[in-house]
Amino acid sequence: MTDTFVTVQGWLGNDVQVRQAGDAQVASFRLGCTPRRFHRRTGAWVDGPTQWYTVDAWRALGENCRDSLRRGDPVVVHGRLEARVWTNSAGAEVTTMVLEAASVGHDLARGVSRFRKAARVETATPEGPSVAAPAGEQAAAPAA
């Protein structure tokens, strides 16, 4: 099966919410994207209808989203797009667009940002110290 990867620019509609999914954490937020077009006849910019996406970011990416993003931030998200169809309480079929993020960042066309590398965590094993891994990820044992 071929996955559809897209890059979407928009604004966070809510603060990042983190939940546990099995043994992994997933962070979710809503991303609003409003297309803007120049209307030649009137000489004015016109906003189109806002499209809303649910963005899911897993594990370390999700933790970094939680620590970095706030409601109203302009962001760029690249990931796998999926349409989820479900039935609401009124019995109507609803389609929700979900973007499983592969990468997320502030939109630097809208402002400035400072990058800070995530802290690395050292873990000990019976064989000795292990290789450091980014916070939120399992550290690997050193090669023998």
Rank of each mutant, 00 (worst) to 15 (best):
S28G: 09
T96V: 08
D67Y: 10
Y53A: 00
F5R: 14
F5K: 14
A90K: 14
C33A: 11
D23G: 07
A109P: 05
V76C: 10
L12Q: 00
P49L: 10
W11R: 15
R116S: 10
T34M: 05
A92C: 08
A57D: 05
G13T: 02
R36A: 06
D107R: 01
E137I: 03
R80F: 07
A144K: 15
R40N: 14
A124D: 15
L61K: 06
G32P: 06
E93L: 01
R59D: 02
D73G: 03
D73H: 11
T96M: 06
Q138N: 11
V94S: 03
S103E: 14
A124P: 14
V6P: 09
S103C: 13
S103R: 08
T54N: 07
R120A: 13
V26H: 00
V76S: 09
A143E: 06
V75M: 04
E100S: 15
V8P: 04
L31M: 01
A92N: 15
D73Y: 03
G13C: 00
D23Q: 11
A44Q: 15
G62Y: 02
A135L: 09
R30L: 11
T50R: 13
P126R: 10
V77E: 01
T95V: 12
R71P: 10
V26G: 05
P74T: 06
D67T: 12
N64V: 08
G10Q: 01
R84V: 08
G62D: 01
A140W: 11
V16Y: 02
A24W: 11
T42H: 07
V77F: 01
